[in-house]
Amino acid sequence: MSVSANSPKPSLRAFLAKYSVLIAFAAIVIFFALTSPTFLTPANLFNVLVNNVVMLAIVALGLTIVISSGGIDLSVGVSVDMASMVFVMLLAAGYSGVVGVGGGLGAALVVGILNAILITRLNISPFLATLGVLFIGQSTQQLATSGGQPIYLTSGYASDQFNAIARTALFGVPTPVIVLIVLSIAVHVLLHRSVFGRYVQAMGAQPGVAWYSGIRVPRELSMVHVLCALLAGVTGILLSATVKSYVPLSGNAFLLDAIGATFIGTTLSRERKPSVVGTLLGVLLLAIVKNGLLLVGWNFYWQQVGIGLLVFLVLAVSFGLRRATH
């Protein structure tokens, strides 16, 4: 049996299956570079990074942790929204930025703890638990905003705090990008280098084995869901700081893209495990395609078709070729 492990036939198929994302990524970059003169300009790439990558990537980082543990979090949008809502409400009420950020993250924390309780105490499967929380979170927002009225912050309203978050830069790098870099490194270390990360991988691979190895599965799993909600909360704060408002139910837009990006990233690993690098690559891929399609003249609607087809193709190549090599 162990012989099959080192049967060293690096077939083209296996190669393609493993690197399908990278190949697609390279092909797409080359394609857009050739068809759009503005695509490769620093200004455009910078724009993609700040506007399309950062917020989605932070949500996706959280989902990467959850999916590694063998679960899913459909309520990330609620965490985004709740953080955004509390943050904006606090600022509108005249509180300082620090209180606003604290309150926003606190709101996301509540969502995470609720998920954790449902999953680890009541033994509800993550999919259903977070689906329920998603429903409740949507209701809560509608009730709190009389049916979904956005809360705008007119300029002058604590505008310093907004600027401090969204519009400043450190050595020419915008603050949100720095936040993303710091969080990516932190999550990477946590997931791939730390004891906690190893426990998360074990729970994802075989929860029974984790339990029989003396791992405190409920505690670690709670931590997983709390971290995911907190990361989504960071996105919520960045989002409202950027658009200077809270728009109810806007967080849900991240859910499908973040799941897509995380799973695109899993195609990098043989066992289809999520990884921080893979997830970031997935987010970049989605962002670049959106931007590129825009530049070559596709309107917003076609972009969605393009993204869907791209994700479909990457998944098809990765899953299909892998199946063929098995």
Partner: peptide, 25 residues
Amino acid sequence: VALGLSVRENISLASLRRYSKSGLV
């Protein structure tokens, strides 16, 4: 044993604290 984990990860799973410093393996 967790079939989807490596031999290394399986062997050290119950004793990771031995091989770690301040939470990092």
